[in-house]
């Protein structure tokens, strides 16, 4: 398979869904997060003949933690179809032009070598990695909303892992397990703290 045909759509999906994960609210944000994490994991582990245990672990961790962290009633079909209308998603992105521009700038910046020994590196992986870092880092440092911060942390960490994978390849098994646990912890703690703060404020 042509690597470009595999990597290009995934890099675009990762950057776009990463931007939506930190700018949207509720349903669209969670769906975008799952999409971003899946695209980033596929880019990072590049499944060719068979699925690697590390990829399966990453996807299981993200899907499981997201399902657990989702507020109840969020997956109602009618509401989901309403929130995921392309027109609404586009409107969300235009309301946050800085994030949209960060995504595009990240993809472009990724084409420039990092002055590291990157002979074997992939331009598209690096682009997606830089884009996710640029998208996730500002809300991770500044957001006042717990769940948005947790999602931004997942986006940023995925970006750093993509950047790493573009130069050094996928993680070893032990590190994969630790990072998968990290994704689960970020999402579950975010959901738990958000719930506690809401109750305390009520």
């Amino acid at each position: 398979m042509n690597p470009l045909l595999f990597e290009l759509p995934l890099a675009l999906v990762a950057a776009l869904s990463g931007a939506l994960a930190v700018t949207s609210a509720r349903r669209a944000a969670w769906i975008a997060l799952v999409l971003m994490a899946t695209a980033a994991a596929l880019l990072e582990f590049r499944p060719s003949d068979s699925l690697s245990p590390a990829l399966l672990l990453r996807l299981t961790a993200i899907f499981g933690a997201t399902l657990y962290a989702l507020p109840p009633g969020l997956l109602a079909w009618r509401a989901l179809a309403h929130d995921l209308q392309p027109r609404r998603l586009l409107a969300t992105l235009t309301e946050h032009p800085v994030v949209a521009v960060s995504a595009v700038a990240g993809l472009i910046l990724g084409t420039i070598p990092l002055a590291l020994p990157i002979e074997g590196s992939s331009v598209l992986l690096r682009g997606a990695g830089v884009a996710l870092l640029l998208i996730g880092l500002p809300p991770l440092l500044t957001s006042r909303y717990v769940e948005a911060t947790a999602r931004a942390a997942v986006v940023t960490l995925s970006g750093a892992l993509l950047l790493r994978a573009s130069i050094l390849g996928a993680l070893d098994l032990f590190s994969s397990i630790a990072i998968a646990a990290g994704f689960v912890a970020l999402l579950l703690i975010g959901a738990a703290v958000a719930g506690q703060l809401t109750k305390a404020e009520e």
Binding site: L116, L133, L137, L140, L141, V146, T149, A150, A152, A153, T156, L157, G159, A160, L161, L163, R164, I167, L168, G182, A185, L186, I189, G190, V193
Partner: peptide
């Protein structure tokens, strides 16, 4: 949570 989120990213960059 915020601190750990940032530091996880920093440590990946350190390893890179």
């Amino acid at each position: 949570l915020r601190t750990v989120g940032v530091l996880l990213t920093v440590i990946v960059v350190a390893e890179l």
